[in-house]
Design a binder for these strands. Structure first.
Lengths: 237, 237
DNA sequence: TGGCATGTTTAGTTTGTCCTAATTTATCGG
DNA sequence: CCGATAAATTAGGACAAACTAAACATGCCA
């Protein structure tokens, strides 16, 4: 297992780096200095320096010029932050009148300040939810997540029907727009038309008929409707 | 008025210093380097250095070797932190199952991370409380507080009756003990006996007859019972 | 295969906050 | 009013995390 090091508390910066590296390495390949710098709004040299320190602490594996990956310890920290972030978002929306487009910023600061205990109290108050308001899965207390593989709206065939499950963005403007056109998790939509060359997609869904751009469509992740409209919990056919 | 400076965000350290200085200067006299260092668990030279920086920023007035006082700007920051702290404590107790002895630590971290907006949402959810679970007054949104002058239990005459209003400590052990012996805000107690030379005090109150030490007694602040049991809102006699 | 664009790292600084050791100031008792 | 003691400050340094400017590596294309 991992060296359960003397665990001096991690700084806010370290937590943020690990969280971003987690996101960027979701698809298996190492994260680049440049991308990390972009997401954290820092200069590349700052990132380079931090990666060295993170590697010394055993939180990442860094091959200079080749990119960085999380170690098991690093992934644990990152998943802990992801859990915190998503539970905080869920709580603020459920109990304190926040909307799905304005919770991110608040959660971004709170996730570094709350205790494990408070997170578990919030989770309990929410009934241990498995997804946050954006449809992102919440790692459970022992940090396991089921990363379900959904299909972007751009890949649903014309004429097909699908249920929106997850919106892959934190940007308030995009989220407000998606809510306005009715593309929120749980909504069922039908693809009426899709133009070529990254062209617009026409859907019928919660808020009637809508035309949305290709880029945004790529962020909306869906579960395609089953042939027979029943039992997505049924394993036995 | 005060120079509404470009307001670059204050650091956590600065907020903590100002809050401690606020507490230490409540009774009018300047705070000493040594006392600040004691409360913040820092060395005296660290505090000396920080006081110089705070003075440069116009948050305190520092007369070297003589102590430090808050400026209006500094007091505003401190009161804002006090409001945040006490609302967070109230919220955690009311909605998330915290007890009065374990909220302090959590609030101590959260107060630096929450937005003004979240604080106001919590305050609204609580019905804009005027006192926190320890009986400490919560500054209102424009930061005015009524610092009521209560009387310590040690000053109530033997045979006298008083209502506990405020417990002047954050220490979990003391708070748990006070709760166990029934000395919580709102409880009415009668002083049965007080021994000389900082001796123990015998009270009858919420949890029956109790003997408590002089030091603890000094922390329990009370409103002495009126001669006639009525109308403490009446101005006209 | 050599050269160049792109991306990364090293070098050297800055800022904020802390430390220990040494020095200076204030004060109180004789 | 002088010196001892307690308190505060200065001096000098460390460390985390950011920066800019300069040097260096990788990989692709002609």
């Amino acid at each position: 297992m991992s060296a359960a090091l003397a665990q001096e508390p991690l700084t806010r910066s370290v937590e943020d780096y690990l969280k971003v590296i987690y996101r960027l390495t979701q698809r298996g390949q190492p994260a680049s200095t440049r991308d990390i710098a972009g997401w954290l709004q820092l200069s590349a040299p700052s990132v380079s320096g931090m990666l060295r320190r993170l590697a010394e602490q055993g939180l990442v594996e860094h091959s200079p010029y080749r990119g960085v990956q999380l170690t098991d310890d690093g992934r644990r920290v990152a998943l802990r932050m992801v859990r915190r972030h998503r539970i905080i978002e869920s709580y603020l929306v459920a109990f304190l009148g926040y909307t799905w487009d304005d919770v991110h910023e608040e959660a971004e600061r709170l996730e570094h300040a709350v205790s494990d205990r408070l997170i578990e109290r919030m989770a309990a108050a929410l009934g241990h939810p498995r997804f946050d308001p954006h449809g992102d899965p919440i790692p459970d207390e022992d940090l396991s997540v089921d990363e379900l593989s959904y299909v972007p709206l751009t890949d649903i065939p014309v004429g097909g029907t699908a249920e929106v499950r997850q919106v892959g963005t934190d940007q308030p403007e995009r989220l407000r727009y998606l809510a306005a056109v009715g593309l929120t998790p749980g909504t069922t939509v039908t693809i009426l038309d899709r133009q070529p060359f990254q062209g617009p997609i026409t859907v019928r869904g919660g808020a009637g008929e809508q035309v949305i751009g290709h880029e945004l469509g790529g962020m909306v992740l869906c579960a395609p409707a089953e042939r027979q409209e029943e039992g997505r919990n049924d394993d036995a056919v």
